[in-house]
Protein backbone atom coordinates (compact mmCIF):
# COMPACT_ATOMS: atom_id res chain seq x y z
CA UNK A 1 0.00 0.00 0.00
CA UNK A 2 0.97 3.64 -0.27
CA UNK A 3 1.42 5.78 2.82
CA UNK A 4 1.56 9.57 2.88
CA UNK A 5 2.75 11.56 5.82
CA UNK A 6 4.54 14.73 6.77
CA UNK A 7 7.88 14.09 8.39
CA UNK A 8 9.83 16.97 9.88
CA UNK A 9 7.68 19.42 7.98
CA UNK A 10 8.13 17.81 4.56
CA UNK A 11 5.61 15.64 2.73
CA UNK A 12 6.68 12.07 2.09
CA UNK A 13 5.14 9.25 0.15
CA UNK A 14 6.13 5.62 0.66
CA UNK A 15 5.13 2.99 -1.86
CA UNK A 16 4.87 -0.79 -1.60
CA UNK A 17 4.54 -0.62 2.15
CA UNK A 18 3.63 -3.99 3.63
CA UNK A 19 0.45 -3.67 5.71
CA UNK A 20 2.06 -5.10 8.84
CA UNK A 21 5.06 -2.81 8.63
CA UNK A 22 5.84 -0.40 11.46
CA UNK A 23 6.24 3.34 11.16
CA UNK A 24 9.81 2.80 12.34
CA UNK A 25 10.56 0.55 9.38
CA UNK A 26 9.05 3.05 6.95
CA UNK A 27 11.09 5.91 8.38
CA UNK A 28 14.37 4.02 8.40
CA UNK A 29 14.17 1.79 5.37
CA UNK A 30 11.87 3.63 2.98
CA UNK A 31 12.26 7.32 3.73
CA UNK A 32 16.00 7.35 4.43
CA UNK A 33 15.62 8.64 7.98
CA UNK A 34 17.68 6.23 10.08
CA UNK A 35 17.94 8.54 13.10
CA UNK A 36 15.22 6.70 15.00
CA UNK A 37 16.84 3.50 16.19
CA UNK A 38 15.57 -0.03 16.11
CA UNK A 39 16.58 -2.09 19.10
CA UNK A 40 13.78 -4.14 20.61
CA UNK A 41 10.75 -3.73 18.32
CA UNK A 42 8.54 -4.29 21.35
CA UNK A 43 8.15 -0.91 22.98
CA UNK A 44 10.60 -1.65 25.78
CA UNK A 45 13.58 0.55 24.94
CA UNK A 46 12.25 3.83 23.53
CA UNK A 47 15.12 4.19 21.06
CA UNK A 48 12.54 4.53 18.26
CA UNK A 49 10.63 7.38 19.96
CA UNK A 50 9.14 9.91 17.55
CA UNK A 51 6.37 12.50 17.80
CA UNK A 52 3.18 11.37 16.06
CA UNK A 53 0.88 14.37 15.74
CA UNK A 54 2.80 15.86 18.63
CA UNK A 55 2.62 12.82 20.91
CA UNK A 56 5.74 10.79 21.80
CA UNK A 57 5.24 7.18 20.72
CA UNK A 58 7.31 4.12 19.99
CA UNK A 59 7.47 4.12 16.19
CA UNK A 60 8.00 0.36 16.27
CA UNK A 61 4.46 -0.09 17.64
CA UNK A 62 2.65 2.16 15.17
CA UNK A 63 1.42 0.38 12.06
CA UNK A 64 2.53 2.31 8.98
CA UNK A 65 -1.06 2.71 7.83
CA UNK A 66 -1.98 4.29 11.15
CA UNK A 67 0.45 7.12 10.37
CA UNK A 68 -1.30 7.95 7.08
CA UNK A 69 -1.88 11.69 6.87
CA UNK A 70 -0.14 12.42 10.16
CA UNK A 71 2.69 14.73 11.20
CA UNK A 72 5.81 12.99 12.39
CA UNK A 73 8.84 14.58 14.01
CA UNK A 74 12.00 12.50 14.27
CA UNK A 75 15.38 13.33 15.74
CA UNK A 76 16.43 14.55 12.29
CA UNK A 77 13.86 17.33 12.56
CA UNK A 78 14.29 18.11 16.22
CA UNK A 79 16.46 21.20 15.75
CA UNK A 80 13.99 22.73 13.30
CA UNK A 81 11.12 21.79 15.57
CA UNK A 82 12.77 23.42 18.60
CA UNK A 83 13.68 26.49 16.61
CA UNK A 84 10.14 26.91 15.33
CA UNK A 85 8.85 26.55 18.86
CA UNK A 86 11.15 29.19 20.30
CA UNK A 87 10.24 31.43 17.37
CA UNK A 88 6.59 31.02 18.20
CA UNK A 89 7.24 31.58 21.88
CA UNK A 90 8.99 34.84 21.04
CA UNK A 91 6.02 35.84 18.94
CA UNK A 92 8.01 35.74 15.71
CA UNK A 93 7.65 32.74 13.48
CA UNK A 94 9.98 34.24 10.87
CA UNK A 95 12.77 31.70 10.44
CA UNK A 96 15.31 34.34 9.45
CA UNK A 97 15.04 36.26 12.74
CA UNK A 98 18.05 36.36 14.98
CA UNK A 99 17.61 34.39 18.15
CA UNK A 100 19.02 35.00 21.60
CA UNK A 101 21.18 32.73 23.62
CA UNK A 102 22.53 29.91 21.52
CA UNK A 103 23.36 27.33 24.18
CA UNK A 104 26.85 26.57 22.91
CA UNK A 105 27.93 30.19 22.67
CA UNK A 106 26.39 32.08 25.55
CA UNK A 107 25.80 35.74 24.93
CA UNK A 108 26.08 35.63 21.16
CA UNK A 109 23.35 35.85 18.59
CA UNK A 110 22.66 33.14 16.08
CA UNK A 111 21.12 33.43 12.67
CA UNK A 112 19.35 30.18 12.10
CA UNK A 113 18.82 29.04 8.55
CA UNK A 114 16.09 26.67 7.57
CA UNK A 115 17.91 23.40 7.04
CA UNK A 116 18.25 21.77 3.68
CA UNK A 117 19.13 18.14 3.08
CA UNK A 118 22.84 17.56 3.36
CA UNK A 119 23.37 20.65 5.46
CA UNK A 120 24.41 20.30 9.07
CA UNK A 121 21.61 21.70 11.18
CA UNK A 122 22.27 23.81 14.23
CA UNK A 123 21.35 21.78 17.28
CA UNK A 124 18.27 21.97 19.46
CA UNK A 125 19.00 23.13 23.02
CA UNK A 126 18.43 19.63 24.32
CA UNK A 127 20.92 18.19 21.79
CA UNK A 128 23.59 20.70 22.75
CA UNK A 129 22.95 19.97 26.42
CA UNK A 130 23.43 16.23 25.87
CA UNK A 131 26.83 16.93 24.31
CA UNK A 132 27.87 19.42 26.98
CA UNK A 133 26.79 17.19 29.85
CA UNK A 134 28.51 14.12 28.44
CA UNK A 135 25.22 12.26 28.17
CA UNK A 136 26.15 10.47 24.96
CA UNK A 137 28.33 7.38 24.96
CA UNK A 138 27.56 4.81 22.27
CA UNK A 139 24.70 7.04 21.19
CA UNK A 140 22.21 4.34 20.39
CA UNK A 141 19.63 5.51 22.91
CA UNK A 142 20.28 9.18 22.19
CA UNK A 143 17.78 9.92 19.38
CA UNK A 144 14.88 8.50 21.37
CA UNK A 145 15.95 10.27 24.53
CA UNK A 146 16.30 13.58 22.70
CA UNK A 147 12.81 13.38 21.25
CA UNK A 148 11.37 12.40 24.63
CA UNK A 149 13.30 15.03 26.58
CA UNK A 150 12.47 17.77 24.09
CA UNK A 151 8.77 17.00 24.41
CA UNK A 152 9.03 17.08 28.21
CA UNK A 153 10.60 20.53 28.11
CA UNK A 154 7.98 21.73 25.65
CA UNK A 155 5.24 20.65 28.06
CA UNK A 156 7.04 21.50 31.24
CA UNK A 157 9.91 23.98 30.91
CA UNK A 158 10.92 23.64 34.55
CA UNK A 159 10.61 19.94 35.38
CA UNK A 160 11.44 18.47 38.79
CA UNK A 161 13.79 15.49 38.97
CA UNK A 162 10.75 13.28 39.48
CA UNK A 163 9.16 14.72 36.32
CA UNK A 164 12.34 14.01 34.35
CA UNK A 165 12.61 10.47 35.64
CA UNK A 166 9.00 9.75 34.86
CA UNK A 167 9.19 11.25 31.37
CA UNK A 168 12.31 9.26 30.52
CA UNK A 169 11.15 6.02 32.12
CA UNK A 170 10.42 4.50 28.72
CA UNK A 171 13.92 5.12 27.34
CA UNK A 172 16.66 2.66 28.18
CA UNK A 173 20.36 3.49 28.12
CA UNK A 174 22.91 0.72 28.60
CA UNK A 175 25.96 2.99 28.82
CA UNK A 176 25.64 6.14 30.86
CA UNK A 177 23.93 5.05 34.05
CA UNK A 178 21.42 7.88 33.42
CA UNK A 179 23.02 10.45 35.75
CA UNK A 180 24.52 12.44 32.88
CA UNK A 181 21.27 12.18 30.99
CA UNK A 182 19.44 13.73 33.94
CA UNK A 183 22.17 16.40 34.07
CA UNK A 184 21.64 17.12 30.39
CA UNK A 185 17.90 17.57 30.74
CA UNK A 186 18.38 19.84 33.76
CA UNK A 187 20.96 21.82 31.78
CA UNK A 188 18.66 22.19 28.78
CA UNK A 189 15.83 23.32 31.05
CA UNK A 190 18.06 25.86 32.79
CA UNK A 191 19.35 27.28 29.51
CA UNK A 192 15.90 27.44 27.97
CA UNK A 193 14.67 29.19 31.09
CA UNK A 194 17.43 31.80 30.78
CA UNK A 195 16.77 32.36 27.10
CA UNK A 196 13.09 33.14 27.55
Amino acid sequence: MRVNMTVNGRPYEADDVWEGESLLYVLRERLGLPGSKNACEQGECGSCTVRLDGVPVCACLVAAGQAEGSEVVTVEGLADHARQRSGEAAGAVCPGEPEEGHPGTPGTTRHPEPTRPGQVAPLAPVQQAFIDAGAVQCGFCTPGLLVTADELLERNPDPSDADIREALSGNLCRCTGYEKILDAVRLAAARTGEAV
Binding site: G43, P56, V57
Partner: peptide, 9 residues
Protein backbone atom coordinates in the same frame (compact mmCIF):
# COMPACT_ATOMS: atom_id res chain seq x y z
CA UNK B 1 1.09 0.81 32.51
CA UNK B 2 4.38 0.59 30.61
CA UNK B 3 5.96 3.98 29.99
CA UNK B 4 4.77 7.37 28.78
CA UNK B 5 5.12 6.24 25.16
CA UNK B 6 3.01 3.15 25.86
CA UNK B 7 0.41 5.13 27.82
CA UNK B 8 0.15 7.62 24.96
CA UNK B 9 -1.03 4.83 22.65
Amino acid sequence: VGSPQIRNR
